[in-house]
Design a protein around this nucleic acid. Sequence first.
DNA 1: TTCGCACGCTGCACACCGTTCAGTGAAGGT
DNA 2: ACCTTCACTGAACGGTGTGCAGCGTGCGAA
Lengths: 234, 234
Amino acid sequence: MTGEIISRRARLRAETTAEIKAIALKLMSAGGPDAISLRAIAREMGMTAGAIYSYFPTRDDLVTTLIGDVYTSVVEAAEAARDAVPADDPGGRILAWAEAVRAWALAGPEGFRLIYGDPVPGYRPPADGPGKAAELRACTGLTGLVAAAWPAAEPLQRTERTYTWDDFDPGLVAHVREHFPGLPPAALALTLRVWGRMHGLVALEIYGHLSPLVHDPAAVYRDEIRDLIASLGL
Amino acid sequence: MTGEIISRRARLRAETTAEIKAIALKLMSAGGPDAISLRAIAREMGMTAGAIYSYFPTRDDLVTTLIGDVYTSVVEAAEAARDAVPADDPGGRILAWAEAVRAWALAGPEGFRLIYGDPVPGYRPPADGPGKAAELRACTGLTGLVAAAWPAAEPLQRTERTYTWDDFDPGLVAHVREHFPGLPPAALALTLRVWGRMHGLVALEIYGHLSPLVHDPAAVYRDEIRDLIASLGL
DNA sequence: TTCGCACGCTGCACACCGTTCAGTGAAGGT
DNA sequence: ACCTTCACTGAACGGTGTGCAGCGTGCGAA
């Protein structure tokens, strides 16, 4: 009698997979992304290192899975912070998103390094997979913020280059055109710029370049985001 | 007779040190920052790994030295690009600086990762040293760009927080007040924001987050820098 | 010129790491 | 009851950074 209930084997397998990921995250938060060693995980679980290869074909695949999980969690946190601000305050929603991402990054720099840095020596993110999906979701969230500001922001855009949908990733374009019909390609370019602007100071701070120079990076960041909001005409 | 000429020992030592650094840079450009292994360097030089400990107390010290060298070289490249634009075109000088940094980063992403990312598992940049010196020089260069724009930019700044010199690193403050007397602390905060703004999109691109989404990151970056210049009132 | 010593270097050791693979034993389905 | 599947072990291979005893050469001083 199979099919109805999940087989015992499959359930145990799922539990073990979850335990591996949980321990990997614990080790990462304790010692940084490079503390994710198969041997350390196995040691913690009372297994040998080779056993993990029944669950992940290689360490990089484990890392890829972790990136997907972590990325999804931060996007959900940002979305929640955004939704806590009324929709008729697009500037406030942008600020909420930005502050949520920075707060998350500072609370656990390892996660930020995992997603936006070199998580592990020699690791290269795969073109697709859970990480890419989460990134698309993040972009969609940012596009929503830009879309709300677009009526005010459009007249202020004086780009020398005219963008077309062909300039962007088809998957992203499909997402955007479905969720925000009527939004022009130029707004997508603006979205990427907004992303970069939110990212820059946080990246510098997480990697230790900002804190030695200024005592209150939060204030600088807030000023920057306020300037960003103003530059959108809000 | 010592003192006049450098002793033979010291000269050989300097040559070997230079060779270690040169090979480390070569390996890095070939296989990324994590290819900087003492064993690989020694192999390339026909030595054993332990020998390098006569020149650098640990691998992290070698990396620190490399960071200093690479950081200095990119700052000099940016300064040269800036100086190729007449001083009465502050916006052009900002654009030149930004484009030079981006071009350098794309030409050798390993250098960018070395300075602004996790160069090596577990590496943490020391509080002082050649890297910090180069970073101060970079900040001074950026401050010069902001200082030139300050007359136009100051009226556009509406920060809610008022900055004082105490908010910043004393060394940086000393540098700035010596080179740009009369510049207020708020301009220093603006400098850091400009830094972050130049950094964000490049960091995303180098770590592979931007290129899959847009075919012409250069155009997006240029638009962003032009918007930055406009936000300074130029 | 000769002697002594400093120092660059070797070779080995240790403790880690990711990855592979033959073998084992228990659980599953038939 | 049988047989297959599969998670797991334990050993191995090649890689890494890092210490340390010892050796020989060449420098500098007597």
